[in-house]
């Protein structure tokens, strides 16, 4: 099987400081990979490099495109990369307002990607938007409301709907549950887990919440100071951490 995403020696430096360094991994179709680490460990930098928001200083990010097979997204042309990020990729920001157009209605937010890839029938766009609101458990009557009138959890679910409407194959998530209270988090995780399974999505989830990766991720990568210090199956890493930092991380989780 061809990996959906092959990451080879990806590094990004902020001047003399390390953002992330020499990251290598493969992600297979349908697989969910978690990236954990403390603040400043380079996990968001890595995610942004992979999603094309930041140019990596070294390395390759090879994505298995529908048309041309495995292609390095770092060196591909910008129109092609932006096309990917509208169709096969999705990016869920930590703060919903970074990923939503706050002055555009919920329906318009969901429809934007459809219209960007050429949908020109209002009726179809509207129907898809309604369908997706249902899938992310937002009442259909809210379709013409602006996201600014939504609660934090609803905004996050709307952001997910907006991203998944074009049927992407790879979803990048940056702390998707950050800033939400636990019961809302639980429902969002439930929803994400359902969608990932149902649509056969591959996902990269950056988080510092070990419970989130335990629930969602098949595999886990632990980062510290820009380096990957440990990786493996999620349960294996969390139950039998090898690296000193991972042991610290796992033992730092508050028990209720």
């Amino acid at each position: 099987m061809t990996p959906l995403l092959q990451v080879r020696d990806v590094s990004h430096f902020y001047g003399a400081r390390i953002g992330c360094s020499d990251v290598n991994f493969d992600l297979y179709p349908g697989e969910v990979m978690g990236i954990v680490g403390e603040s400043g460990s380079g996990k968001s930098t890595l995610l942004n490099c992979l999603a094309g928001h930041l140019p990596p200083d070294t390395g390759e990010v090879v994505f298995d495109t529908r048309a041309d097979g495995p292609t390095d997204t770092v060196t591909m042309s910008e129109p092609a990369r932006r096309m990917l990020s509208r169709t096969d990729w999705a990016f869920v920001h930590q703060h919903a307002r970074d990923g939503l157009r706050m002055s555009v209605s919920a329906g318009g937010n969901i429809g934007e990607r459809l219209m960007a890839v050429g949908a020109r029938r209002y009726g179809d766009i509207r129907a898809q938007a309604t369908d997706w609101l249902g899938r992310v458990e937002i009442d259909e009557s809210r379709i013409d409301d602006r996201p600014s009138a939504f609660s934090g959890g609803m905004q996050q679910r709307l952001q997910i709907a907006r991203n998944l409407v074009t049927g992407p194959r790879l979803v990048f998530m940056d702390e998707p549950t950050g800033g939400l209270d636990v019961s809302v988090q639980a429902r969002l995780l439930d929803l994400l887990r359902g969608l990932v399974r149902e649509m056969g999505l591959s996902a990269l989830i950056v988080t510092h919440d070990l419970a989130v990766v335990r629930l969602l991720a098949d595999r886990l990568m632990v980062m510290k100071d820009g380096y990957v210090v440990e990786s493996g199956l999620t349960d294996q890493v969390l139950d039998d951490p090898q690296h000193a930092y991972t042991q610290l991380l796992v033992s730092s989780v508050l028990q209720v």
């Binding site: 910008e78 129109p79 932006r82 509208r86 157009r101 555009v104 209605s105 329906g107 318009g108 429809g111 934007e112 990607r113 219209m115 960007a116 890839v117 020109r120 209002y122 766009i125 509207r126 379709i143 013409d144």
Partner: peptide
């Protein structure tokens, strides 16, 4: 890059409102 999907978002908003 000829990314004009956003222009239609404005028209969509018009029709929906």
């Amino acid at each position: 890059l000829e990314e004009y999907g956003l222009m239609h978002v404005k028209l969509y908003e018009d029709v929906s409102q």
